[in-house]
Amino acid sequence: METIFAIALGAILVENYVLVQFLGICPFLGVSKKSDTAIGMGLAVIFVMALASAVTYLVQQLLILLDITYMQTIAFILVIATLVQLVEMFLQKAMPALYTALGVYLPLITTNCAVLGSAVLNTQEGYNFIESVAYGTFAGVGFTLAIVLFANVRERQEFCKCPKAFEGIPIALVSASLLALCFMGFSGLKVW
């Protein structure tokens, strides 16, 4: 239980995927203009990352068994791409309401480096099955936290004046920098 708590705290605050480790910047900048779409994207990412961590853990065991761990990158990306496709088809049939809510964001998740990143990090850290799933889920929660906070900042920015050259992405990056500065405050937080 203690390790799970440590993993949760680490993945959400201390080593936040977006603001500390730079994983998943593309959706972070791309779909953070409105807070409700940001929440949708965040939920989709949590869902896929939890699933992907579980599946890639099993795939990694299979790779170790066959002694072909150098195939890791290819195997993982294929598994993730297939998984996203399956989740999409399953949700379309079983939970149409959730599907329409997440619809647009699901295909985008394949190229979200946070998903592949968490799969690779899980094997590097040597987590067991439960720890891997916990790490994937909480890293997704960290991503959601960052993107929702950032979306709120950007919503307010709409009404502010800004130098011409900084309009659009540059000012967003500068505000992300300030957000990252806040998250640096958590870096001293160690429970293990």
Binding site: Q21, K164, A165, G168, P170, S177, A180
Partner: peptide, 25 residues
Amino acid sequence: MLMTMPCGGFLTLGCVIAAVQFIRS
């Protein structure tokens, strides 16, 4: 030290892209 930390990365990229946009305009 800040510049080698994550927030320095965001800040530098923001300024570099702003400079490019300025030159292009």
